[in-house]
């Protein structure tokens, strides 16, 4: 999964997609995930990282990540593959 080119994300969690003109807001956890995607981390690596730092069960995290990646795809922020 790759973050689309030119997607701008600010410190406040404001995301702008220059290709579509849409803007979005994401929370701190979302920012962290997008940062890791930008670093080229895989879904598994992201999962392991969050599990090592945050108080969350693996099953819940996987469900939440699935939903988040689905929305990133819906909003054309990431490309699969």
């Amino acid at each position: 999964m790759k973050v689309n080119k030119n997607i701008a994300i600010s410190e406040s969690g404001f995301i702008f997609n220059p290709g579509t003109g849409d803007s979005f807001s994401t929370n701190a956890m979302g920012q962290e995930i997008i940062r890791m995607l930008n670093e080229g981390k895989t879904r598994e690596e992201i999962t392991d990282f969050i599990l090592s730092r945050y108080e969350v069960e693996k099953g819940i995290l996987e469900k939440d990540l699935g939903d988040y990646f689905f929305m990133l795809g819906t909003y054309h922020i990431v490309q699969n593959g």
Partner: peptide, 19 residues
């Protein structure tokens, strides 16, 4: 360990107010 919050993303709809 840090407290966890589910990641979310919301689109700003022009005209529609936010939080």
């Amino acid at each position: 360990m840090l407290p966890y919050e589910r990641p979310i993303i919301t689109r700003y709809n022009p005209g529609i107010t936010n939080k």
